[in-house]
Amino acid sequence: MYKIVAKRELNPTVTMMDIYAPLVAAKAEAGQFIILRVDSDGERIPLTVAGYDRERGTVRIIFQIVGGTTMRLNAKNTGEYLSDFVGPLGCATRTENIKKVCIVGGGVGCAIALPVAQKFKRIGCEVHSIIGFRNKDLLILEDEFKECSDKLTVMTDDGSYGRRGVVTEPLKEAIERGENYDEVIAIGPLIMMKFVVATTKPYNVPTTVSMNPIMIDGTGMCGGCRLTVGGKTKFACVDGPDFNGFEVDFDEAMARSDAYAEFEKGEREKCCNLFRGIK
């Protein structure tokens, strides 16, 4: 069992938790993920590591409440336990030969982008961050990004905070302005990552994307997380989750991501009724 040692609501649909898991905390690196089960009949879900504290032995996760499992997870409080928590899985984000980087985060993807930005800052890179949200209410981690970015641009779709528009606009401007990025790292919804790649490709700026497909074991056994990258079948859990954005088949990944949309809808309703019953 894995204790929840801290819990904080970042916005109405996004929650942060610190989980006591010393073996995972000892090894976790930015870009890796964990798999958890909330209870003994629970589904296994992958969540990318949002931070870690090696001394305290805790791993930070930030999740959006989207389906049955994340609802059940969000119903747990500090001092309670998760049934299972395993990791760190996947490969850490590569940092070699990168001196100047642009981190592009979208929505809850910013939670995963943050430790990546922090890591680049720590090793002495120049870090530019562009983070985007649908509106002001959904904004998360702005202060944390400010701290680790040499330049920060906040975007909202509706202009209720920061600049109005999507993340690819300031990215394109920066590239055209001559910010010679060694690498652009995009972490967010598939559609955002697809458009980031479409933005950087004409300028041939190397672009890494962080994929978070449906998974079960997360160790290279089930093959559920497969993606087509450069025309080949790759497994996000062992080959990724970071991939060369220019090679990822986003259309296939997007189609596969909603394979269980109907089931999830049912689960959400079931959970809503369940929690209504408790309250």
């Binding site: 079960i216 089930c222 093959g223 559920g224 993606l227 088949d249 296939e252 189609a255 394979a259």
Partner: peptide
Amino acid sequence: GEGLKGVYSANE
């Protein structure tokens, strides 16, 4: 077509 929805490995 191996990336279509409804294609599983036996393991999965």
